[in-house]
Amino acid sequence: MKYQNIQPSEGINSSKKNPLPDFLVLLVGSLITIAIVSVFLAYSMGWLAKKIPFEKEVLLTESFEHYFDEVDNAELSTYLNKLVDQLMVCSELPTEMEIKLHYIATDQFNAFATLGGHVFIYKGLLRRLKNENQLAMVLAHEIGHIKHRDPLIGLGRGAVISLAFSMVLGNSPNLLGDAGLLTLLSFSRSMESHSDQNGVEALMRCYGHANGSYQTFELFKTARTELGATKPILAMFETHPLDDDRIEDIKYFAEISNISVAGELTPLPEGFNGWLK
């Protein structure tokens, strides 16, 4: 018997083909699949978020609440909380929802709503407001986000996107962490418009007119021009509709809903600016 090894032909057990074209097809294919799945999931968040009870959303932020330093400012917080309570009623906020307002004594020109009904308002914004109606518009806008469950939808979308990324990048996802519980959740333009509409309606119910609603965004416009160079502090508003469009949209919405944008303005309480320390 003769034993021998004969040189085997190549390309049977393995292919010598360049793997790059195959790789590109796979990459594009998976990106498309992931994109389709994420878009579907992201859109279904709007539907899904409304099925999640508000109390569960509150649980999400409970452990973070000790980070929210309460400013020792009794007069201001009494006033703001009273206004928020009125606006909650005027916004027809479902009774199980509760707004927790936090005042931040820094010069940022900003206000935002986040999970668990927490709304933050900065000194920089309060300082520029001309009357109570404008303040009410800002607050009712943020209450609108809470009412529409926008922070939860934003969180869900963030989680879906970070999941999609981690699928491609191959690392383990830290879903809620990446979506950012305390960071500013970005809302879509349609969310912003709906919240503006909530603001206009709430002003109508509380004050009998919506004077001050669109003027609030004129303040934003002025602030943006002034702060042109230091734009990043306004980053939050970059996803918002352009100021001019937004003002037009508010006027148009008021017109078709038969809400007057003229009426007597309520001044801010005496000494308001003094409270802002």
């Binding site: 057990n13 393995s14 292919s15 010598k16 083909k17 793997p19 195959d22 790789f23 796979l26 990459l27 294919g29 998976s30 699949t33 191959g170």
Partner: peptide, 26 residues
């Protein structure tokens, strides 16, 4: 990493893992 990445993408769809075949063959 290239082999790993290509193989993990491939494992989503199934099929011949060319990049691993050549590694094992060698």
């Amino acid at each position: 990493y290239f082999k790993f990445f290509t193989a993990s993408l491939k494992s989503l769809f199934g099929g011949r893992l060319n990049t691993y075949e050549s590694l094992l063959d060698r």
